[in-house]
Nucleic acid binder design. Sequence first.
DNA 1: ATAGTTGCAAATTCTTTGCAAGCCA
DNA 2: TGGCTTGCAAAGAATTTGCAACTAT
Lengths: 168, 168
Amino acid sequence: MNHEYSLGAVQVSLTPQERFEEYLRSKKMRFTQERRALVDHVFSQHEHFDANTLLEEVAEKFDRKSRPSRATVYRTLNELVEAGLLRKFNVGSRDVYEHDYGYPQHDHLHCKKCEKLIEFQSDALVELRDRVAQDYGFRVTGHRLIITGVCNECRTAKRRERRRHDLL
Amino acid sequence: MNHEYSLGAVQVSLTPQERFEEYLRSKKMRFTQERRALVDHVFSQHEHFDANTLLEEVAEKFDRKSRPSRATVYRTLNELVEAGLLRKFNVGSRDVYEHDYGYPQHDHLHCKKCEKLIEFQSDALVELRDRVAQDYGFRVTGHRLIITGVCNECRTAKRRERRRHDLL
DNA sequence: ATAGTTGCAAATTCTTTGCAAGCCA
DNA sequence: TGGCTTGCAAAGAATTTGCAACTAT
């Protein structure tokens, strides 16, 4: 896991691979080559991704013989979520996955121009969430906040463009 | 609109029907019987709903002759979102719709036991959101927060059940 | 050996679309 | 009347599943 983690990491005692193996064992499932290849690949980069992106990456990375099939990719993604290694959420019309195991709780800013997801952390938000929940006698297990809008780069790009237009 | 609105209403000058008519006119589209029937129905109750629920309600409320088709229901839902009358969001695996026009900004608690959605309003959240966005030079257009967990009723139901079990 | 897995293709689920007939401005 | 809409059925997109052939343990 020598990749850029904008929010730092959470101390965990097992690697994702080990953690997945443990999870599989506890469900009497097997740690097959396909599953190993997929956890390895998924945790070799930190970007958010969707099923289709992963399918394409897998198609490129592995040759026809050793490549996990579409069905296996979908089945494994479900297990990784179930195992708590990945989180799945919905942005716009896409279902995207991100690392959960070994990565701190956070939320997202979603730019609707470039589709980029920016992560941020806010303790105040968690406090607010717990306060609201308490008011409603609600037992919290989690939350998801997505702030939508336009990111800094897209704003300045737009501004530059407007300026150029005005000059003509 | 004489239905229970837990968060009160926002002052608007047009009824949803009128607002939709205006929107349609601005796009050179027509206010047909089907569209009228659908806005009327959708704004006659305040519950969150999904496309399928609406389809079933429509099937029950109208007879075969005057009932908008599946295609028209989907097409109209998209227009209602586009027009700003409805908002669509994703909870778990469902896409649900809720009133937007004439209804204040709010967020949700989602009970994963009974699937209920509880609305709440928090100015502090909006402030927090804007502060975070500012830190990132992000221009906010909106947000969506869903707090997941177990609602009060389901918690007490569970507790009652546990107690009964302990007594046996 | 044998219970769990895989790949394939077919099946699902949900939503959109092409087109001929119908309806609104 | 002319153009926008509708309903129908077919097409799509995304994901799941049944099953016979494999493969971990």
